[in-house]
């Protein structure tokens, strides 16, 4: 059995060594800063500041390369986990490097924009790391399975088809009522904020209450058909509960990634302008 293959697929030594590397790098940066500190720190471009700038630029490229790595599955380019862990550590280290490079001072339009973008990208990164540590774990805890947005959306579509099929087979009076007043609340999601504020238990209770209210809309004699829709409705609500949380994670990525691209572009412009100067 390819146990060696399985082992080689896991995160390598770099992942395990990052905490030590991080401490070493932090101490080194502090030491260099202590010894090279003078009155010009953060005001003019000394050689050491330019070196920090190069380091920060290179670091930003490595951070951005994670996105490229994430989209290449079939090449041996170090494990995704190694990249992920490196991405986080390098991202945090860059805060120090950028401070040493600029003293966090705004000295012009480009460097000012660059600094703002850097703070925004870093903040979004930190928020993302926290979100990814909390939301998926809660999702796993309450629902206990690994699901993706695409899988959940596909299941929602099936629920819609199944509900329509039940309505078609029901007496015409129920079918008409379903089309006019029931289909939307039964098949379509509610406002995303509702799902985010509920716990799973609250969501299930709310779903049952809501279904009971819908039941009062239907005439006697069609209760059986309505009951057949109940499990689909509860499943739809559960799926939307998961979807709301996964959409938050997706939305975060839609913020972090453009910020990172803008940051890199701005860094390139900053580097060119400094070189020309």
């Amino acid at each position: 059995m390819s146990q060696s293959k399985a082992e080689s697929s896991e995160a390598g030594a770099l992942t395990r060594r990052w905490p030590f590397l991080f401490v070493f790098a932090t101490i080194s940066l502090l030491a260099i800063h202590m010894f090279s500190r003078d009155e010009q720190f953060g005001r003019t471009a000394r050689d050491v500041d330019i070196a920090y700038g190069f380091t920060a630029f290179f670091g930003a490229i490595v951070l951005f390369a994670y996105w490229i790595r994430a989209n290449i599955y079939s090449r041996r380019l170090a494990s995704r986990r190694s990249w992920y862990v490196s991405h986080i550590y390098i991202g945090v280290l860059l805060v120090g490097v950028v401070y040493l490079h600029s003293g966090f001072r705004f000295t012009g339009a480009i460097s000012g924009a660059l600094l703002i973008l850097f703070f925004a990208a870093t903040a979004s990164g930190v928020i993302g790391a926290v979100m990814y540590a909390v939301i998926p774990l809660r999702l796993s805890k309450s629902l206990g399975e690994a699901v993706t947005l695409a899988e959940l959306t596909a299941r929602l579509e099936k629920i819609s088809v199944e509900a329509d099929s039940i309505a078609r087979k029901a007496p015409p009076i129920f079918g008409e009522l379903y089309a006019e007043r029931l289909r939307r609340p039964i098949v379509e999601p509610r406002w995303i904020g509702r799902y985010l504020t509920w716990s799973q238990k609250e969501m299930l209770t709310a779903a049952e209450d809501y279904f009971e209210r819908l039941r009062r809309l239907i005439p006697e004699g069609t209760a059986h058909d309505m009951e057949m829709l109940r499990p689909l409705f509860v499943e739809k609500e559960t799926l939307n509960f998961k979807i709301a949380r996964l959409q938050i994670l997706r939305a975060w990525l839609d913020i972090h990634l453009p910020l990172s691209v803008a940051l890199l572009a701005c860094a390139v412009v900053h580097a060119i302008s400094i070189a020309r100067y």
């Binding site: 059995m1 390819s2 146990q3 293959k5 399985a6 080689s8 697929s9 896991e10 995160a11 994430a70 599955y73 079939s74 041996r76 494990s79 995704r80 986990r81 990249w83 992920y84």
Partner: peptide
């Protein structure tokens, strides 16, 4: 097929958090 023809297991190698593991 344990990613026959590759030197790594795609699912494990591309998991960003190390959640997926092949174990004996």
């Amino acid at each position: 097929d344990m990613c026959k023809g590759y030197t790594f297991l795609g699912c494990v190698y591309n998991c960003p958090t190390g959640a997926a593991q092949r174990v004996a």
